[in-house]
Amino acid sequence: MLVKESKQLTRDVFALTLEGQFDYDKVTAGRFVHVLIEDGKAHPLRRPISIASCDSHAKTLTLVYRVVGDGTLWLSKRIRGDTVSLLGPLGKGFVAPHKPGKVLIVGGGVGVPPLFQLAKELVQENFELDIVLGFRSQGDVFWTEEFAQFGRVTVCTEDGSLGEKGFVTAVIDVTNDWTTLYSCGPKAMLKALRNHFAGSTIQGYVSLEERMACGVGACWGCTCLDPSGSLAKRICKEGPVFSWEEVSL
């Protein structure tokens, strides 16, 4: 696909908007693309990046990612007109709420992006959203205003430099009447959320991140375990989105 725009959102987070031929019809929130770095010779492994936003009419796809190494650094330097090769969309995305009612969306750091496409899809289906976005510090915060068009947004930072101080769980009242919770972020956050809602009837979904090789389910590089610890699930194939009772966090 062709780079339409590359934008720096924070010190190390970038948004890449691509245009052109893609299987837009197969995009659902939570699915990801596997991005080739250069021609793959120095970087044989593609980078799995979630789809932050997809516009099938304008034929554009936006990926938001953090620069963590050489591969993502190369990606951050693409400019309008450059070509980037994608594989996908891959994996299983978020499942729509089973019942009507209020929905809670919780994102942490670079776990926030796939929740944007999700919020967009849920609002189109008339769900009412509460959105909690957690970041390390003020300088790491992005897209909070963009999310505001979809629902009530609460921002928190670990150091209190913006919004509420502390982790996302500190601002979430479990007695609220949400039917469904969707979350993506560090594993510690996902686990804390699940514990926070222990005993509640809320249906929780988590999107997991892991280093991947093939991205299509063939290499078994990115597995997680079920709660009993006896069954492996491939994050790239059966996930990355799982109902939170079907995986061990």
Binding site: K41, P44, R211, A213, W220, G221, C222, T223, S230
Partner: peptide
């Protein structure tokens, strides 16, 4: 076999390291 704990793949220049551990 479940194989080894993750992360069990990582990229290096011109290649990759895997420690899947015969998951099958």
């Amino acid at each position: 076999r479940l194989g080894n704990p993750t992360p069990r793949v990582t990229e290096v220049t011109g290649g990759m390291l895997n420690a899947i551990g015969l998951a099958n």
